[in-house]
Simulated scan of single mutants.
Amino acid sequence: MDKITRTLGRSPETIAVFRALKLGDLLVAVPAFRALRRAYPTAHIALIGLPWAADFVDRFSVYFDEFIPFPGWPGLPEQTVDPAETTRFLTRMQERPFDLAVQLQGNGTCVNPMMALLGARLTAGYYPESLPQYCLDTALYMPYLEGQHEIRRHVQLMEFLGLPSQGYELEFPLTDTDCLRAENIPEVQTLEPNRYVCIHAGGISARRWPEYRFAEVADALAAGGYQIVLTGTASETAIVEKVKTAMKFPAISLAGKTDLGVIGCVLSQAALLVSNDTGVSHIAAALKTPSVILYSTSRPEEWAPLNHQLHRAVLESQATNSQRVISEAWTVLGH
């Protein structure tokens, strides 16, 4: 019997998962979400997340039944705190006490006090081992180990709670509607499956691999016969244009023309992704699209895809010129 069922005296009927972060952060937690759902197949499971994550819950409806927007909390940098809305959020949570609230946000120094205010019958998650006062329940909170891989970390929490692992594989479900929207984009219609490479030079990090280096990689792959597709959000259009302008070969720009589903369909038929460490790199890992990922501020030991044959991690310090990335790209492509 798992710890939750034993402590509660029954299987939980309602569960809230707190992870109010970005796309990549949620994708690497999917194996933990899968383990939670398999352990409690009839439970009503809600994700408490940033406003954008409503789309994530829709895509992962096999694991989640509800999305609860998170209004922010002092000390969390992802959004500005509205004290009145945060108070209303806590009141709403307390008015419908969940059987279980699971903290997957981080080490707990900032958010565990909030977890105690959610009104759940049980809470579980992480605490910093050096600060035991942040441990809300010694049976249900495990030490947060710095430097651990994010995928393994969250699966291990599930195992700590007595829920069997369902593997470390990522997922990114695609729908017929996603692919239909992709097919309706004129630029996508010109792409030959497995004969194009996606280049994603944007990302949320303040420091990224330079655009001209991405252009050098793109030109080398284009010279080898691959179409080049430059991807990015609307806010990354200027970055994409810098890459395109620096290139010698022609390239297709999809900047601002894709949503998550469309970029998933484009990546699913790509021969390769070359990207900074950002959300699309985890989509590629989920879709088993080969990739070469540049790490400027994050650590590959914590964030890189686990399949090192299909996905290559390159530190910015190892890529002072483009040759290392080009070499890794050709290796992954089988040349």
Rank of each mutant, 00 (worst) to 15 (best):
residue 4 I to K: 06
residue 4 I to V: 04
residue 7 T to Q: 15
residue 13 E to S: 14
residue 15 I to K: 09
residue 19 R to K: 15
residue 20 A to N: 10
residue 23 L to V: 00
residue 27 L to K: 03
residue 27 L to W: 07
residue 30 V to N: 01
residue 30 V to M: 01
residue 35 A to K: 01
residue 38 R to Q: 13
residue 42 T to G: 14
residue 42 T to P: 13
residue 59 R to D: 05
residue 62 V to I: 08
residue 62 V to Q: 07
residue 68 I to K: 06
residue 68 I to A: 02
residue 69 P to N: 00
residue 69 P to L: 00
residue 69 P to I: 02
residue 80 T to D: 08
residue 89 F to L: 01
residue 92 R to N: 13
residue 93 M to S: 12
residue 95 E to V: 06
residue 99 D to S: 03
residue 101 A to D: 03
residue 102 V to W: 00
residue 103 Q to P: 01
residue 103 Q to W: 00
residue 109 T to G: 10
residue 112 N to S: 04
residue 113 P to L: 00
residue 119 G to T: 13
residue 121 R to G: 08
residue 124 A to L: 00
residue 126 Y to G: 03
residue 128 P to H: 09
residue 132 P to N: 12
residue 133 Q to H: 13
residue 140 L to I: 02
residue 141 Y to K: 04
residue 145 L to Y: 01
residue 146 E to M: 07
residue 146 E to C: 05
residue 148 Q to C: 05
residue 153 R to T: 08
residue 155 V to E: 01
residue 157 L to T: 11
residue 157 L to A: 09
residue 157 L to R: 14
residue 159 E to F: 01
residue 162 G to T: 05
residue 162 G to L: 02
residue 168 Y to W: 07
residue 168 Y to L: 15
residue 169 E to N: 11
residue 173 P to C: 00
residue 175 T to G: 03
residue 177 T to D: 13
residue 179 C to R: 15
residue 179 C to A: 08
residue 183 E to C: 11
residue 187 E to T: 07
residue 190 T to M: 15
residue 193 P to W: 09
residue 197 V to S: 05
residue 200 H to V: 02
residue 200 H to D: 03
residue 205 S to K: 12
residue 207 R to K: 15
residue 207 R to I: 13
residue 211 E to V: 12
residue 213 R to F: 09
residue 213 R to Y: 11
residue 224 G to A: 15
residue 226 Y to P: 10
residue 236 E to H: 03
residue 239 I to Y: 03
residue 246 A to H: 06
residue 256 G to E: 13
residue 258 T to I: 05
residue 259 D to S: 07
residue 264 G to E: 11
residue 267 L to F: 12
residue 270 A to C: 09
residue 272 L to N: 10
residue 275 S to Q: 06
residue 277 D to F: 00
residue 278 T to S: 15
residue 278 T to N: 15
residue 293 I to Y: 08
residue 299 R to H: 05
residue 300 P to M: 08
residue 300 P to A: 12
residue 307 N to P: 02
residue 309 Q to M: 09
residue 310 L to F: 04
residue 314 V to F: 03
residue 319 A to W: 06
residue 321 N to R: 14
residue 323 Q to F: 05
residue 326 I to V: 08
residue 328 E to D: 03
residue 328 E to T: 03
residue 333 L to A: 11
